[in-house]
Amino acid sequence: MTEHSADYRRALDRAEGILGFSLAPYVDPGPSEPANAYDFTRIATEHAFNDVWPRDEHLDLRTRALVSVTITASLGILEPLRGQLRIALRNGVTKEEIVEAFIQMAVYAGVARAFDSYAVAREVFAEQGGPDTA
Results as ranks from 00 to 15, higher is better:
residue 1 M to Q: 11
residue 1 M to R: 14
residue 2 T to M: 14
residue 2 T to W: 12
residue 3 E to A: 15
residue 5 S to H: 09
residue 5 S to R: 08
residue 6 A to K: 15
residue 7 D to E: 14
residue 7 D to F: 11
residue 7 D to A: 15
residue 8 Y to D: 09
residue 8 Y to S: 09
residue 9 R to I: 13
residue 9 R to E: 15
residue 10 R to E: 15
residue 11 A to N: 08
residue 11 A to S: 05
residue 13 D to M: 13
residue 14 R to A: 13
residue 15 A to T: 10
residue 15 A to Y: 12
residue 16 E to F: 07
residue 18 I to A: 06
residue 18 I to E: 01
residue 19 L to A: 11
residue 19 L to W: 12
residue 21 F to N: 03
residue 21 F to W: 10
residue 22 S to N: 02
residue 22 S to I: 02
residue 25 P to L: 01
residue 26 Y to S: 02
residue 27 V to T: 13
residue 27 V to Y: 09
residue 28 D to P: 03
residue 30 G to T: 00
residue 30 G to C: 00
residue 31 P to H: 00
residue 32 S to P: 00
residue 33 E to P: 00
residue 34 P to M: 00
residue 35 A to I: 00
residue 36 N to C: 00
residue 38 Y to Q: 05
residue 39 D to E: 08
residue 39 D to P: 01
residue 40 F to G: 06
residue 40 F to T: 10
residue 41 T to K: 02
residue 45 T to F: 01
residue 46 E to S: 05
residue 47 H to K: 01
residue 50 N to R: 10
residue 50 N to I: 06
residue 51 D to M: 01
residue 53 W to A: 07
residue 53 W to K: 02
residue 54 P to L: 01
residue 55 R to V: 03
residue 55 R to T: 00
residue 55 R to H: 07
residue 55 R to G: 05
residue 56 D to M: 01
residue 59 L to D: 04
residue 62 R to C: 08
residue 62 R to L: 03
residue 63 T to P: 12
residue 65 A to W: 10
residue 66 L to G: 07
residue 67 V to H: 12
residue 69 V to Q: 06
residue 71 I to H: 09
residue 72 T to K: 09
residue 73 A to Q: 07
residue 74 S to Y: 04
residue 75 L to E: 05
residue 76 G to F: 06
residue 76 G to Y: 03
residue 78 L to K: 14
residue 78 L to S: 14
residue 79 E to K: 14
residue 79 E to A: 13
residue 81 L to D: 06
residue 82 R to H: 09
residue 85 L to P: 03
residue 89 L to A: 08
residue 90 R to F: 03
residue 91 N to S: 11
residue 92 G to N: 13
residue 93 V to L: 07
residue 93 V to S: 12
residue 96 E to H: 11
residue 97 E to F: 13
residue 101 A to Q: 03
residue 101 A to E: 12
residue 102 F to W: 05
residue 106 A to K: 04
residue 106 A to C: 05
residue 107 V to G: 10
residue 108 Y to H: 13
residue 108 Y to I: 12
residue 110 G to H: 01
residue 111 V to F: 07
residue 111 V to G: 08
residue 112 A to M: 05
residue 114 A to F: 04
residue 115 F to R: 11
residue 116 D to I: 04
residue 117 S to Y: 10
residue 117 S to F: 04
residue 117 S to D: 04
residue 117 S to I: 10
residue 119 A to P: 03
residue 121 A to P: 07
residue 121 A to T: 06
residue 123 E to H: 03
residue 124 V to N: 05
residue 125 F to L: 02
residue 125 F to M: 10
residue 127 E to G: 02
residue 128 Q to W: 10
residue 128 Q to C: 03
residue 130 G to C: 01
residue 132 D to Q: 05
residue 133 T to E: 06
residue 133 T to I: 05
residue 133 T to V: 07
residue 134 A to F: 05
residue 134 A to V: 09
residue 134 A to H: 05
